[in-house]
């Protein structure tokens, strides 16, 4: 196991940031922590990177205990915090050199590992880090986190606020890193990125809702889910909320995802209801749930199961 967590809890005053979290990440796995702002993702990262001490439970990273072996862990992990934390006044190259030096290595020694990413910012190597665009900062931060060839890479919300194109490129980089046998723990509030991970943990309010492969999580969705559309979206949502059979009705792009309270639900019944409300252009058809559907279903029904 590359990362193990057993019954980890942490509070800040009365606020419970993490509540009895347990899971393992295997060597070479790309594992995603999926949850909104305030779910406890950053606290978890800080405990695993030895920057914060848990109140309860035990955790190991690359075989080392996060409390007793914290020095060893620091030599074997790369950490890219959510907030850009490189030296803004140093140039791109100076930052990278700095991180290589404090880990007692050189850019040349591990250039192979970062080459893919670094070549994209190398033309700007004399520019100060503070003057880089968001996408370039992100690539530099990743290069710095990798320069000492870590066994485990921690990436805290690397794609927040990043546009869809740059996000796609970033995930392609992660996939290539994974092939070099680096374990990656990555957090994101974008549910669509969950499907790019080997396994994911859905996390909210300091608790794990579910851990599994994205596929298994989608397959386990407990209800049939329907795409519903009508000409007036706002009125449609309101009317769906007043429809007696509605279990959930959430806008999803051009459709509203609808689930019924009843397993013997018939779409014709909903069609009749909506026609009665003078809707036009009505479409109702079954669709495949997404991770986001599961997340909302789980956070709503509050099946905050004791963690697996």
């Amino acid at each position: 196991m590359s990362i193990t967590l057993r019954n980890i809890s942490k509070s800040y005053g009365p606020a419970k940031a993490l509540n009895d979290i347990s899971f393992n990440v295997e060597q070479g796995e790309l594992f995603g922590l999926i949850g909104p702002d305030g779910a406890g993702k950053t606290t978890l990262f800080r405990i695993l990177t030895t920057l914060l001490i848990q109140e309860e439970g035990e955790a190991t990273v690359a075989g080392y205990d996060v409390i007793t072996d914290y020095k060893a862990i620091r030599n074997h992990v790369g950490y890219m915090p959510g907030k850009f934390s490189l030296y803004q006044d140093l140039t791109v190259e100076e930052n990278l050199n700095f991180f290589a030096t404090i880990f007692d290595t050189t850019i040349d020694e591990n250039y192979d590992l970062i080459k893919d990413i670094y070549v994209q910012i190398e033309p700007f190597k004399n520019r100060k880090a503070g003057k880089l665009s968001g996408g370039m900062k992100q690539k530099l931060a990743l290069s710095c986190a990798l320069i000492h060839k870590p066994k485990v890479l921690f990436l805290d919300e690397p794609t927040t606020g990043v546009d869809p194109v740059s996000r796609k490129e970033f995930w392609e980089m992660l996939k290539r890193l994974q092939q070099k046998n680096i374990t990656i723990l990555v957090s994101t509030p974008y549910m669509d990125e969950a499907e790019l991970c080997d396994r994911i943990a859905l996390i909210t309010d300091g608790q794990i809702l579910e851990i599994n492969t994205p596929h298994s999580i989608i397959d386990a969705f407990p209800k049939k889910i329907y795409n519903v559309r009508a000409s007036e979206t706002y009125r449609l949502i309101q009317d769906l909320e007043s429809y007696p059979n509605t279990h959930s009705a959430y806008p999803f792009g051009e459709y509203v995802h609808f689930t019924s309270r009843h397993s013997n639900f018939s779409p014709e019944d909903l069609m009749t209801f909506l026609k009665g409300k003078q809707h036009t252009g009505i479409e109702i058809f079954e669709t495949i749930p997404t991770i986001e559907d599961t997340f909302m279903e789980l956070s709503n029904t509050n099946t905050l199961a004791t963690n697996a």
Binding site: G35, P36, D37, A39, E157, T160, G161, P189, M191, T204, T233, Y234, I237, Y250, P251, E292, F295, M296, S299, N300
Partner: peptide, 24 residues
Amino acid sequence: DEPTGGVDPITRRQFWNMIYREAH
């Protein structure tokens, strides 16, 4: 300007409901 970045999926939808309401 990016009002919903990082917001959980349910609240994100509630937010859009507020947007729709104002547009209405």
